[in-house]
Amino acid sequence: MSLSDSQFMRYSRHLLMDDIGEQGQQRLLNAHVLIVGMGGLGCPVSLYLAAAGLGGLTLCDGDTVDQSNLQRQILYTPEDYGKPKALCAQQRLLALNPDIEVNIFTEELSPATLAPSYDLVVDCTDNLATRQQLNAYCFAQKIPFVSASALGWEGQLVAFDFAASGNLCLNCIIDKESAEPLLNCSNSGVVGPVLGVMGSLQATTAIRILVGYFKQHGRVQRYDGKSGQWLTLNAKANPQCDICGVR
């Protein structure tokens, strides 16, 4: 399959890059990505992936748009108050790029969400239980998993390519039995563009994996927007891990 004239124009800035080119763009157009959580991270992730020509996006979020979301959730407007986030996002993303397919689930993550097959999952949720559910799903399906979170001035990203590497997963780094900390975005706040930084990094990482340049399985990136500092940490597989350990 080759690109249409309109696709040649739309994606010309990818096509100009030797290490993406027509072949890389075709990989993006053929890929279907699941984005779970359409809040502060899901908005930039989905905007960039839709613009980049990810052929299929599935958005999952059970929430409706609230006035307090608009400080950081850049897909939504006051006209969206009370409407499902996934539905509003689908309309915006298709307006941005009618060339792609956007499916939605307007409820929390459920077996129905995970029934179709995906090429990659982006975790934009706000709780460990859902993150761990997605980690286990991606490990079992042997598909890449790009997870991020943010709070206050800080963000964290970790990605796994389970198609290429069989051990080391999110549960090796943060035990799934861990309690939730007291602080979250609802009770302690978050700087909007910090979510933009981390969401852009998630979208970049997803594109990097799909085009074929990912070698950082399980590496943790941390950003502190207050000091402007970045930290990169390595992690080791836990042989006793419930998800990826040897049993």
Partner: peptide, 26 residues
Amino acid sequence: NQMIVGWEQPVFDGAELAFLPPVTGG
């Protein structure tokens, strides 16, 4: 030394030990 470890990991001379707060929101 840039490797994620547990609370009971022995810490040796010359090491750099970093503590990072949880980041949970989205």
